[in-house]
């Protein structure tokens, strides 16, 4: 199969999976697309939204559409790290001899739903870190690889913060995207009611296998990106740093720490997936702009001014992108615009 045919296959598979998920999830087309983008980019996704918006259902439906193993962990304050990664237990064999045997935890799955991740203690949350970053966990001194592809979809609730443990910046940075699930419009709400209050259940077809996902992940990385598009992405990330000499005023005023290089990687990788999913073989400026908020919103740490004024990081990222674009237009000659 030629690369062009593989690219066409990717477009087909992406759209098929999106269609399958949309059979169950109503009105979150952009969220679904971003979740799939995160999966094909090889990253993990954090979904944030109030209860009842279908975050968990979205992940379960996605897992049903893929021929991959799926496990779900409901995070609670008394959850222990061993409840996630597993532990060594003593077993007795037929001869009556006892030995340790590793009992796999729920993390050993292709798709892991970490539901309400901010309800567990930081110790338990950090048990996910190694798995998310390295694709392996270490138990009893032995490193155990996780199945590939390994994809963590975590959800968290922005309200009811009492008794929760907000994710530390280091762990937030390990998520490729943070997606905000918003409340549906009235038409979408009607569609949800219609679909979910009938007796007939919607069947989800499995459209993709694990090796296919891995193949597409490799293909995505071959998408070329022009230097000016790459520069645009890196300038956006640099513009989130208040210490940068060319940082826009909005950053200097409200941001304490800007996005890490992981943010730039997330931006470009996500843009490559988006380009390929739209049938293009190159990354454009529009791809970068479309993914700036999901890739950067959780990587900005606001200062006191920003926190006190309740600055929305989505708006902040939008203003940063606008200022970077305006600066690049200003630098160009009028004939080149």
């Amino acid at each position: 199969m030629s690369q062009e045919e593989r690219a066409q296959a990717f477009v087909g598979a992406f759209r098929a999976l999106q269609t399958e998920v949309e059979k169950v999830i109503v009105g979150h087309g952009e969220i679904i697309a971003h979740v799939l983008t995160g999966m094909f980019a090889g990253g993990h996704v954090l979904l944030e939204g109030v209860p009842g918006l279908g975050k968990t259902l979205l992940v379960k439906t996605l897992a049903e559409g893929l021929e991959l193993s799926f496990s779900r962990i409901q995070f609670t304050p008394d959850l222990m790290p061993s409840d996630i990664v597993g532990t060594n237990i003593i077993v007795e064999d037929a001869d009556g001899r006892k030995h340790f045997q590793f009992q796999h935890g729920p993390i050993f799955a292709h798709i892991l739903l970490a539901d309400e991740i901010n309800r567990a203690t930081p110790k338990t949350q950090s048990a996910l870190l190694e798995g998310m970053q390295e694709g392996a966990v270490t138990v009893g001194g032995a490193s155990r690889p996780l199945p590939a592809p390994f994809f963590v979809l975590a959800t968290q609730n922005p309200i009811e913060m009492e008794g929760t443990y907000p994710l530390p910046e280091a762990q937030l940075d390990r998520f490729l995207f943070k997606l905000r699930v918003r409340y549906p419009a009235i038409e979408e709400l009607n569609a949800i009611i219609d679909r979910t209050t009938r007796s007939r259940q919607v069947g989800i077809e499995r459209v993709m296998s694990g090796p296919t996902v891995l193949g597409f992940r490799e293909l995505v990385r071959e998408v070329p990106i022009a230097s000016h598009v790459r520069d645009f992405a890196s300038t956006i990330v640099m513009a989130t740093h208040p210490q940068w000499e060319l940082a826009p005023d909005v950053t200097r005023r409200y941001v304490r720490y800007g996005a890490s290089p992981r943010g730039a990687q997330a931006l470009v990788l996500g843009a490559k997936v988006r380009a390929l999913a739209e049938g293009r073989y190159n990354v454009s400026i529009e791809d970068i702009k479309a993914l700036a908020a999901p890739a950067l919103r959780h990587r900005l740490i606001l200062n006191f001014e920003g926190e006190a004024e309740g600055v929305d990081t989505d708006i902040l990222v939008g203003q940063v992108v606008e200022s970077v674009e305006a600066a690049s237009v200003e630098r160009r000659e009028p004939f080149l615009q």
């Binding site: 062009e4 071959e222 998408v223 070329p224 022009a226 293009r280 073989y281 190159n282 990354v283």
Partner: peptide
């Protein structure tokens, strides 16, 4: 053209181009 021409100009002559670049050029 969604930055296609600029990408082709930059990538067509590069030795490390991927097979997708050929698809990009044709497109």
């Amino acid at each position: 053209l969604d930055d296609r021409v600029a990408t082709v100009l930059e990538w067509a002559g590069r030795p490390d181009r991927s097979p997708l670049v050929d698809a990009l050029v044709a497109d």
